[in-house]
């Protein structure tokens, strides 16, 4: 079977990566980039480095979801029917398989979007995310944390609340999006 080797290699890499907490992977990627680039260059692209680091740390979940759903869909009879009329693999993938794996991916995506927001906040809280000159909820919470015991609780609480609300709305949006894209519920 073609693709068998690529599949095996990629999935084993994903398995290995899944044994580490994803925040650790993000920290590692961020650290490597930091070490490799001069400080002023890094500050300019810090935002993208964070995006990249979080992206790398979360990919195995997406890969597994997509792979699992694809394996199910590609053996369904409507895909076979498309193969009988001789459509190309690429076309079948784009018009039949992809729309049907989108549902589960969307669920994972929204869950992970909120996780990514939390990851950014965590990185910034730890002081390794975006530079302090850039606005970030994590940075705000970290700064507020220092003043927590001096009675200035509101510096931390409000960014914290904002974070909670944002994560919640993203999850709700995901649920709604999944239902809206499902023709059975229309």
């Amino acid at each position: 079977m073609r693709g068998g080797v690529v599949d095996a290699v990629l999935m084993r890499i994903a398995d290995i990566q899944l044994t580490f907490p994803s925040i650790l992977v993000a920290l590692l990627v961020d650290g490597v980039v930091r070490a490799a680039l001069p400080r002023e260059v890094h500050d300019q692209i810090a935002l993208f480095v964070v995006i990249f680091a979080i992206g790398i740390s979360e990919w195995p979940k997406f890969a597994r979801t997509v792979r699992g759903s694809t394996l199910v869909e590609r053996n369904k009879e409507y895909v076979l029917a498309a193969r009988v009329i001789g459509l190309s693999r690429l076309r079948i993938m784009a018009t039949h398989v992809l729309p049907n794996v989108l549902g589960p991916v969307l669920v994972v995506a929204t869950l992970n979007l909120s996780l990514a927001i939390l990851a950014e906040a965590t990185l910034s809280f730890l002081g390794v995310g975006v530079p302090p000159t850039e606005p970030s909820l994590g940075t705000l919470i970290r700064i507020g944390n220092d003043f927590l015991f001096s009675g200035e609780w509101w510096i931390t609480i409000f960014p914290g609340l904002a974070l909670v609300m944002m994560v919640l709305s993203v999850n709700l949006l995901g649920d709604w999006l999944r239902d809206a894209l499902n023709p059975k519920l229309r």
């Binding site: 369904k76 076979l80 029917a81 009988v84 049907n100 023709p183 059975k184």
Partner: peptide
């Protein structure tokens, strides 16, 4: 394509043989 057109297949499970989307 002109030759493939001449054969078609009908499947068992009417719930899986039509793309739900």
């Amino acid at each position: 394509a002109e030759q493939r057109r001449r054969m078609q297949m009908i499947f068992q499970d009417p719930y899986a043989s039509l793309n739900p989307r």
